[in-house]
């Protein structure tokens, strides 16, 4: 694999109190790669995703995004904690989409999308609005720019949330079970948007239960259980001929 990996995890550990949530995660995501993560709930996949975006701090190991350590700065062999401002800057380069959308309910779809470009990147309003409209159009919501989130269906809200993350022109997109809170008939429209993103070469880490999506769109698939990566590889290989008993059991219960 040439060049710096977009995400590189080496023996990443994380515990909440005495509960070990991540017990040594090693993996790499190359630029333009779409990595899907599957596993039973409580296996640590969401926590790992949140660690990438500084929403959780790791307790041991090394985690870096685009060649830079997450949460720390290394000088010699000493680690220094990052200042809030630096953490904010790094987060602004990573887009994140949540299971429960988390759109800002007091803002219209367009306002949701342009908020961070205006306030964080201090872009001019004209530029932010222009890009915001184009992004909403891209996710198929051109006519919903002035709608408030509660006037939108779950699928529409999630598409606005994707547009909101894209508005910051991130180099990496994290998806935390983006379709798990949706009615079954609305899942497709969100996956279509994500498929389009993948085709455009966006680097994506997707925690999902959508095996079809993982198989068709994913470049790699990681199966996690109890805080470790049990199995990783090409989606087709992992899904059709899993090597581990634990993977087989999980897959047979969800497929």
């Amino acid at each position: 694999m040439a060049g710096t990996p977009m995400v590189k995890a080496e023996s990443v550990h994380k515990n909440f109190g005495r509960l070990e949530v991540l017990r040594g995660i090693d993996l790499e995501v190359a630029p333009r790669e779409v990595m899907c993560m599957i596993g039973p709930s409580g296996s640590g996949k969401s926590t790992f995703l949140r660690c990438i975006n500084h929403l959780e701090k790791i307790d041991a190991g090394r985690l870096s995004v685009d060649g830079e350590l997450v949460g720390y700065r290394q000088q010699g062999d000493k680690l220094y904690e990052l200042h809030d401002a630096e953490v904010c800057r790094k987060r602004s380069e990573i887009g994140m989409v949540f299971q429960r959308f988390n759109l800002f309910p007091h803002m219209t779809a367009l306002e949701n999308v342009i908020e961070a470009p205006l306030r964080v990147k201090r872009e001019s309003r004209a530029i932010a609005v222009d890009r915001g409209r184009r992004l909403l159009e891209r996710v198929g919501l051109a006519e919903k720019v002035d709608a408030y989130p509660n006037q939108l269906s779950g699928g529409q809200q999630q598409r606005v949330a994707i547009a909101r993350a894209l508005a910051m022109q991130p180099k990496l997109m994290l998806f935390d079970e983006p379709t798990s809170a949706l009615d079954p008939e609305l899942v497709g429209e969100v996956l279509d948007v994500m498929r389009g993103l993948a085709e455009d070469g966006m680097t994506m880490v997707v925690v999902t239960h959508e095996m079809g999506f993982a198989r068709e769109v994913g470049d790699s698939l990681v199966f996690m259980d109890a805080g470790v990566v049990v199995e990783a590889g090409k989606p087709k290989d992992v899904l059709t001929s899993p090597q581990h008993e634990r993977t087989r059991t999980f897959l047979s219960s969800v497929l």
């Binding site: 929403l55 904010c88 602004s92 961070a116 910051m168």
Partner: peptide
Amino acid sequence: GQTEAAQALGMD
């Protein structure tokens, strides 16, 4: 979740 979403966008 509102705070998290805002933080994830890089807001301080």
